[in-house]
Simulated assay, not measured.
Amino acid sequence: MSPRGVAIPDVRERLFAAAEQVLAREGPGGLTGRAITTEAGCAKGLLNTHFAGLDEFIAELCLDRFARTARAAGELPARAGKDTIAENLLSVALVLLDSAGPAAASLALTRPAAFLRVREALEGGAPGFAAVEEAVAAYLRAEQRLGRLAPDADTGAIALALVGTVHHLLMTGWSGAPDPRTQAERLVAMLAGAVGPVR
């Protein structure tokens, strides 16, 4: 436990990581300010020192994880010409599947104030699934320029199919559901087979 008055480096990330651990272990019902700070090993009031309450915390967690995922996807266009198109598409699908943003977003949907804050931020240009979709489309256009993807392939539709399907898998990934990674692999194989010459 951090002593009172001692600064905690990167406190936001520490609290966000603790919240993810609580969510993974106990589900949305177990996510309280006290559970988060206990998991983080810090003073009980620390969350309210940095956030206006649990709703703001949940919204900021969701937006932070969306931004982190969008940054990772933004590196995809630089992969053009490397590995196979299927491998590169699968890599971004797995980044999305491993992201905690959708779990936080599902939680935000149950808390109107948090949901409103997330929606307003996304409408205002905060990175989210739209940014990931554009990164995938930009990557595919780069592959077209290299001749590794059919010139008439609809890059926007492929990106939408990939990101939309992964979003669906995330939102329906309850216990007992099929492994989303296997389904993502099947989707990528189908997309890669439908877009022309893939090397």
Score class of each variant (00 low, 15 high):
1 M>S: 14
3 P>F: 13
4 R>N: 02
5 G>L: 00
8 I>A: 10
8 I>C: 07
10 D>V: 00
11 V>S: 10
11 V>C: 10
13 E>F: 06
14 R>Y: 10
14 R>P: 07
15 L>A: 08
15 L>M: 15
16 F>K: 01
18 A>I: 08
19 A>W: 08
23 L>N: 02
26 E>K: 11
27 G>R: 14
29 G>L: 09
31 L>Y: 08
32 T>N: 02
33 G>D: 07
37 T>N: 05
38 T>N: 09
38 T>P: 00
39 E>T: 05
40 A>W: 06
44 K>G: 05
46 L>E: 12
47 L>S: 03
47 L>P: 09
47 L>C: 11
51 F>S: 01
52 A>E: 15
53 G>M: 09
53 G>V: 10
54 L>D: 01
58 I>F: 02
59 A>P: 11
64 D>C: 12
65 R>G: 05
67 A>V: 01
68 R>K: 12
71 R>L: 15
75 E>P: 00
77 P>V: 09
79 R>D: 08
81 G>W: 01
82 K>Y: 04
82 K>L: 13
83 D>M: 10
84 T>H: 06
85 I>M: 13
88 N>K: 07
89 L>C: 03
89 L>K: 03
93 A>V: 01
93 A>Q: 05
94 L>K: 09
94 L>C: 07
94 L>N: 06
95 V>I: 12
99 S>E: 05
99 S>R: 05
105 A>T: 00
108 A>L: 01
109 L>V: 00
112 P>A: 10
113 A>L: 13
115 F>L: 15
118 V>D: 04
119 R>L: 14
119 R>T: 14
120 E>W: 01
126 A>E: 15
127 P>F: 01
130 A>Q: 11
131 A>L: 03
131 A>T: 15
136 V>T: 07
136 V>I: 11
138 A>P: 00
139 Y>A: 00
139 Y>L: 04
140 L>R: 03
144 Q>W: 03
145 R>G: 08
148 R>T: 12
148 R>C: 06
151 P>H: 06
152 D>M: 09
153 A>R: 01
153 A>S: 11
154 D>E: 15
154 D>N: 15
154 D>C: 04
155 T>C: 14
155 T>S: 06
157 A>W: 07
158 I>F: 11
163 V>S: 10
164 G>Y: 09
165 T>V: 01
166 V>F: 02
166 V>Q: 03
166 V>M: 07
171 M>N: 11
171 M>K: 09
171 M>H: 15
171 M>V: 06
172 T>V: 05
172 T>A: 08
174 W>Q: 13
176 G>N: 08
177 A>R: 12
178 P>L: 12
178 P>K: 08
178 P>N: 07
179 D>M: 04
180 P>S: 04
180 P>F: 02
182 T>W: 14
182 T>K: 14
182 T>M: 13
183 Q>R: 14
183 Q>I: 13
184 A>Q: 11
187 L>Y: 05
188 V>K: 12
188 V>S: 13
191 L>F: 04
192 A>V: 00
195 V>G: 06
196 G>T: 10
196 G>Q: 07
199 R>D: 06
